[in-house]
């Protein structure tokens, strides 16, 4: 078993240049900390599952060996340019694609110059992967439900287990997705409603106590009530791939808000 590390992190660009006096800096530092931790654990490959990379015709797995460029977020373009550079384990991308396909999931390994890398993956990689560890990127298939995503994650768990490289899985997703619809002063950023805050903390508490089965049951209501990002399928993926296991409590390193949405840096026990 080479799943060595797993975490759930936010992926909004506010984290890269945190506004002074905002809570974004603490989230960014927590992400840097998990980068240090996974390096100390000897991780040789980081797999990103970002709910900001949405695919329609099944799941996509990035297979372009090297990717670099400058990214400008479609929504948060005023935050500036984000240089990025990825070294992708393309052979493992093919293995993941084959494993998922064998399990009945339409999956394609893609290799196109200029393919848009999503902001969440770029932000996470910038903060976590500061020393060029090999990566993998997996899309969030829009039409996969929570249970399907659990099964999809399971299909990749076998590929990871059969491989020798110590691997970290990083799910990139917000918690509650209700943002402020207007510009705000970042110093006054907070979860957009007490109800969302309560829900986020309830879900974090369940993850912290290792009560993932209970969390699974609550996700549909949580997603509907708080617009948890893409049905909070990030947790489904982590469940399937074996990172979020019952009775193995996760550790919440930081919880806060990004433009009203919920953001947490959570490390799982692997």
């Amino acid at each position: 078993m080479t799943l060595t590390f797993a975490a759930l992190v936010p992926g909004l660009p506010h984290l890269l240049n945190p506004a002074p006096g905002s809570g974004h800096d603490a989230l960014a530092r927590a992400m840097a900390h998990i980068g240090d931790t996974l390096e100390a654990k000897g991780v040789k490959r980081i797999l990103y599952y970002s709910t900001q990379w949405l695919s329609v015709l099944g799941t996509m797995v990035q297979a372009q060996p090297t990717i670099s460029g400058v990214h400008v977020d479609a929504s948060w373009h005023q935050l500036g340019e984000i240089p990025f550079s990825f070294k992708v384990d393309s052979a493992f991308a093919e293995q993941m694609s084959a494993a998922a396909t064998a399990a009945g999931f339409r999956t394609q390994a893609i290799n196109y110059e200029g393919f848009p890398i999503d902001t969440g993956t770029i932000v996470a990689n910038r903060l976590i992967n500061r020393h060029g560890i090999a990566t993998g990127m997996i899309s969030s298939w829009l039409y996969a439900g929570y249970e399907d995503t659990v099964k999809f994650g399971q299909s990749l768990a076998d590929a990871i287990a059969a491989d020798t490289a110590p691997t970290a899985v990083i799910a990139v997703s917000s918690l509650s997705g209700n943002y402020f619809p207007t510009d705000i002063d970042p110093r006054e950023d907070h979860i957009s409603s007490p109800e969302d805050d309560e829900w986020n903390q309830r879900i974090i508490a369940l993850m912290s106590s290792g009560s993932f089965g209970a969390a699974d049951l609550l996700v549909p209501t949580y997603a509907k009530t708080c617009r948890a990002e893409v049905g909070f399928k990030a947790l489904a993926f982590l469940r399937g791939i074996g990172a979020a296991r019952e009775k193995q409590g996760a550790t919440c390193l930081q919880y806060g808000a990004i433009h009203g949405t919920g953001a947490a840096v959570i490390q799982f026990s692997c």
Binding site: S55, E113, G114, F180, H259
Partner: peptide, 26 residues
């Protein structure tokens, strides 16, 4: 071009580059 906050408008005199459709890159 989906924006979370606001109705934004392209306002650079010249925009160049490669646009790859994330759904139909082929």
């Amino acid at each position: 071009w989906q924006t979370t906050v606001g109705h934004d408008v392209l306002a650079v005199p010249k925009l160049q580059g490669l646009s790859v459709d994330p759904i139909f890159p082929h």
